[in-house]
Simulated assay, not measured.
Amino acid sequence: MAVQLELIATAPMGLEAVVARELQQLGYTDTKVENGRVTFPGSLIDICRCNLWLRTSDRILIKMGEFEARTFDELFEGTKALPWQEFIPANGEFPVEGRSHKSQLSSVPACQGIVKKAIVEKLKETYHTEWFPENGPRYVIEVILLNDKALLTLDTTGPGLHKRGYRKHATEAPLKETLAAALIQLSRWNPSRPFYDPCCGSGTLPIEAAMIGWNVAPGLRRSFNSENWPVIPDSLWQEARDEAFDAFDDSIPLEITGSDIDPGAIEIAKAAAKAAGFAKEIKFEALPAARIQPSGEYGCLITNPPYGERIGEEKEVRKLIAQLGRLSVQLPTWSFFALSPTKTFESDFGRKADKRRKLYNGRIECQYYQFLGPLPPRRTE
């Protein structure tokens, strides 16, 4: 099969540029940023590397094709013309998912049915059989119709990339690991600076910081659908995993702390940190935000404070934000970062943010408030 593929790293809304920057740091310089995705050329081993390494993307897709589709006939013929047989074996399981927006073909179930039928016809020509057992490796196909154009993709990831494998339990409304990694990357924190999260919940932000600090590939502890695909040799996955193990560096000292008012959350966070391999490196403590005392200079406080959805809660959340504002005065060399939908955040904090960025936590529209302290002095050799 053709080695050169068009790959897509899907991105949560507002994080496309962060995903593109990650790809560029991994050596993928020819990127095209679009709404909700970053497209780039790659080969089979790049499927392995990107699934293992991308911290802020949701999944890695193969772009199978894109074409005009105003009628079911056009959708059928356009789908059938694509090289499905290069990926899907005779026993492959190939469910079809779909979305439609601003398109004449608006019935998603009907479009899914047409795409499935077209792929079956294509595979019949290759495998000379009328029946496919679908009891083998899984190939999730998605058809997206937008403005009468069909985009067909093949999902190489399986469960989303936020499922790192270290979190067995979670607190209510946990922060997705991919979003947590993005907040850290946007803060420009690095392991030479102290890190503190005073509303750590199940520990996602501190754990993601530790993984960045030690250069741990986030996908190292999990498996992916495409690991079972005959088209990708096991040797490529082994090569990519070996590279990731070689890049890991546990010699870097980490100063990472998470605290939360809920002792139950702290127990969950400690279990997750242990599963991720950071039981000794991350300090967790059950403390109300009013009592925290971050140590060190030029640190980063990064947090996702609770959202006040009821009247009593809102008052408590505003009080918490005010406490963080007072703490920022006591820690003049620290930078403070908070993801929150609270409209009064800046006035409660006590000053205007140096930067704001609109991001979505699930479907909740938030602002990422950034209060920037001085940068650490450059170390002289």
Rank of each mutant, 00 (worst) to 15 (best):
residue 348 D to F: 00
residue 238 Q to Y: 04
residue 257 T to G: 03
residue 246 D to N: 04
residue 339 L to W: 05
residue 242 D to I: 07
residue 265 A to P: 02
residue 279 A to I: 06
residue 342 T to R: 03
residue 258 G to Y: 09
residue 263 P to T: 01
residue 231 V to C: 12
residue 215 N to G: 05
residue 254 L to H: 10
residue 274 K to L: 13
residue 278 F to Y: 13
residue 270 K to D: 08
residue 331 L to A: 04
residue 312 G to T: 07
residue 260 D to M: 08
residue 352 K to W: 02
residue 262 D to G: 10
residue 301 L to K: 06
residue 312 G to F: 04
residue 312 G to A: 11
residue 297 E to P: 02
residue 259 S to D: 14
residue 344 T to D: 09
residue 228 N to A: 15
residue 332 P to T: 06
residue 301 L to S: 07
residue 293 Q to V: 08
residue 296 G to K: 01
residue 270 K to S: 14
residue 328 S to F: 06
residue 349 F to T: 09
residue 231 V to M: 12
residue 219 G to Q: 11
residue 330 Q to C: 10
residue 215 N to F: 03
residue 270 K to C: 13
residue 235 S to Y: 03
residue 251 S to D: 07
residue 342 T to V: 09
residue 312 G to L: 12
residue 271 A to E: 14
residue 339 L to D: 05
residue 293 Q to Y: 10
residue 310 R to L: 00
residue 298 Y to E: 02
residue 296 G to V: 02
residue 280 K to R: 13
residue 225 N to I: 00
residue 309 E to C: 01
residue 316 E to T: 10
residue 258 G to A: 12
residue 304 N to I: 08
residue 325 G to R: 07
residue 298 Y to D: 03
residue 350 G to R: 08
residue 283 K to F: 07
residue 215 N to W: 03
residue 307 Y to S: 02
residue 299 G to V: 09
residue 300 C to A: 15
residue 281 E to T: 06
residue 243 E to W: 02
residue 337 F to V: 09
residue 325 G to Y: 10
residue 290 A to F: 07
residue 346 E to W: 06
residue 308 G to W: 09
residue 337 F to P: 04
residue 323 Q to F: 00
residue 258 G to P: 05
residue 254 L to Q: 11
residue 288 P to S: 08
residue 348 D to G: 01
